[in-house]
Nucleic acid binder design. Structure first.
Length: 554
RNA sequence: GCGCCUGUAGCUCAGCUGGAUAGAGCAACGGACUUCUAAUCCGUAGGCCGCAGGUUCGAGUCCUGCCAGGCGUACCA
């Protein structure tokens, strides 16, 4: 619709120039937007103001020249006006909106899809929590954001692959192994000192017990370091499996699970280090190896191999990100917790050092989640009885409510997640508000069927009955859906879609309360059913991209 | 100290990349269920958009400087 208006303006300006009403027909891109205020029309353009300085003409005069030359071939317009400093406002006839409905029905679950990506290979990596403990709420937010960003980009024509990076190597895994082994020793009555910085949770004891029941005291009879690494592998593997299950329960599945250890096994890490040494961007100082990240905009250089010969986490991350590009991704998106923001520069540095562009690497920094219950903060400790894990939250409030709530905020803002609120079935909790629309329409359709209405399709006469204010509003809102999708994709901001759906839901509920869909007038009922099923499709379409279900009944 | 994020109605947040008179929900107050699901709707009230400058036809939005809060600033991940 916007493009049609823009074309109208373009043609009008050109013919104004040909007739000599305007000194030039050169202008930048025509911006057409939906005014905030209804009385300013359905669409508005500021083109006259933009052109004013170049043409050295007062904006209102330019606007007059353009409106005078408008040729409304399809008779879409009811009226135009020049307002304020030089806006041109367009008022459309109600019937101009009707074809949108046909489009929605025709495109169905593809309505709103755009080919922004043109098949470009893009990777979205998210959550990637260390396999040293269960996922918490913060990871849930990352999962909700990452998964729906991936969905939206895929919907917009990108070839998207989602990935979970398993940090199954390095010091934290070793500590995990030592923690389990110590608990294992305890089971055999050995006197052990359990350090503060080891993993304290009860699940560590459970692993020890499992290992004992599986293999008895075998671990005491072999080399201690071997036992530690056996414990580490056992624990990491089962925690990873649990994480995978928790995410599945949350509705998130990945295309690929990628192991950090595999980078070492394949020699990728040492290959990158050698390569960077050759390029003279890795040097030795104080017995450690440093990467010159400062040359790429980081505050200072960073260590990749410690004095003791061990590589840092950063070293494998360099290899990992290089590997991503080697796998053919043209763009790589990482979803990280805000507490990792200091890490962006150095990873970006490594990507540039590997010969890729800065803008091929995007980080979505998701701010922290504060868990509340009835307005009171829930202590994020492992004390018994307190809900801290993602799986606890999901089983208490439900998958849909949790996912939707995570997306009701720009990810750049910290989020208060209130467990009581999430369970409430009121307007305070917008998931149900949106889902209710879908269920209500499903109910109308069931009733319609009882009355013998089977086929709901486009009929000129019945669609023509749609001219109530609330009906036109609904259709207008639906016509904006493709733009919302597009801007969510470009900005990687799923919350735009969330808010749009709440708005559409609001329009629908208002309509529902004022008008009946099934009336005594068959023509009218049919037209309204046609429209309402379109609403249902848009709602379902949007909820699906957010990873939220669209129920037939509530 | 430096870096990133945030500051909009009493509370929780939007604000379409610079547009006209700043919008929702909750809470408050007043209304609407014999009718397709009241998990809904309608109305009233509520604002120095943190503060001060600047950029321009035009700023909640961009720039600079302050103020406040969160996070980060490892040879941890």
């Amino acid at each position: 619709m916007k493009e049609k208006i823009a074309n109208l303006i373009l043609n009008a300006a050109t013919s104004a120039y040909e007739k000599g009403d305007l000194p030039s027909a050169e202008f930048s891109e025509i911006e057409v937007e939906v005014p905030k205020i209804e009385s300013h029309g359905d669409f508005s353009t500021n083109i006259a103001m933009i052109m004013a300085s170049a043409l050295k003409m007062p904006p209102r005069k330019i606007a007059t020249a353009i409106t005078k030359n408008l040729i409304d071939q399809k008779e879409m317009l009811a009226n135009t006006e020049i307002a304020g400093p030089g806006f041109i406002n367009f008022f459309l006839k109600a019937s101009s909106w009707h074809p949108i409905l046909r489009k929605i029905h025709a495109e169905d679950s593809r309505y709103g899809a755009a080919d922004l990506g043109k098949g470009k290979k893009i990777q979205v990596e998210f959550v990637s929590a260390n396999p040293t403990g269960p996922l918490h709420v913060g990871h849930g937010r990352g999962a909700a954001v990452g998964d729906s960003v991936a969905n939206i980009l895929r919907f917009c024509g990108y070839d998207v692959e989602t990935e979970y990076y398993i940090n199954d190597s390095g010091r934290q895994i070793e500590t995990l192994g030592r923690s389990v082994f110590l608990r294992y020793k305890e089971l055999y009555g050995m006197d052990v000192q359990f350090p503060q910085d080891y993993y304290q949770g009860d699940y560590i004891r459970d692993f020890a017990k499992e290992i004992k029941s599986l293999g008895g005291k075998a671990l005491l009879e072999q080399d201690e370091e071997k036992s530690v690494s056996d414990c580490a592998r056992f624990a990491a593997r089962s925690i990873t499996a649990q994480i995978r299950q928790d995410l599945t329960d949350f509705g998130v599945t990945y295309d690929k699970w990628y192991s950090e250890q595999s980078l070492y096994d394949a020699g990728t890490v040492s290959a990158v280090i050698d390569d960077f040494k050759n390029k003279k961007i890795i040097y030795e100082k104080d017995g450690a190896l440093w990467f010159k990240t400062a040359e790429f905009g980081d505050e200072k250089d960073r260590v990749v191999v410690r004095q003791n010969g061990q590589t840092t986490y950063f070293a494998s991350d360099i290899a990992y990100h290089r590997n991503k590009f080697e796998r053919g991704f043209e763009r790589v998106i990482d979803v990280w917790g805000a507490d990792h923001h200091g890490y962006i520069q150095r990873v970006a540095a490594s990507i540039q050092a590997s010969g890729h562009q800065k803008d091929q690497f995007n980080v979505i920094l998701v701010q922290l989640v504060n868990l509340l219950r009835g307005g009171e903060p829930v202590a994020m400790s492992t004390r018994a009885g307190e809900f801290v894990t993602l799986s606890d939250v999901v089983s208490e409030v439900g998958r849909d409510a949790a996912r939707f709530l995570f997306l009701t905020r720009n990810y750049e803002s910290p989020l208060d997640f209130d467990l009581e609120l999430a369970k409430q079935k009121t307007n305070d909790n917008p998931v149900f508000y949106v889902q209710y629309v879908h269920a209500r329409i499903a109910s109308i359709l069931r009733k319609g069927k009882e009355r013998g209405i089977q086929h709901i399709n486009w009929e000129d006469e019945s669609v023509a009955t749609l001219k109530a204010l609330e009906e036109i509003n609904l259709i207008k809102t639906m016509s904006r859906y493709p733009e919302v999708i597009k801007s969510s994709a470009v900005n990687m901001e799923p919350h735009r879609l969330t808010f749009y759906l709440m708005g559409l839901a609001s329009d629908f509920h208002a309509y529902y309360n004022k008008h009946r869909v099934l009336t005594d007038d068959p023509l009218l009922s049919h037209g309204r059913l046609y429209m309402v099923t379109a609403v249902q499709k848009v709602i379902r379409n949007g909820l699906t991209l957010l990873g939220v279900s669209a129920p037939e009944k509530m």
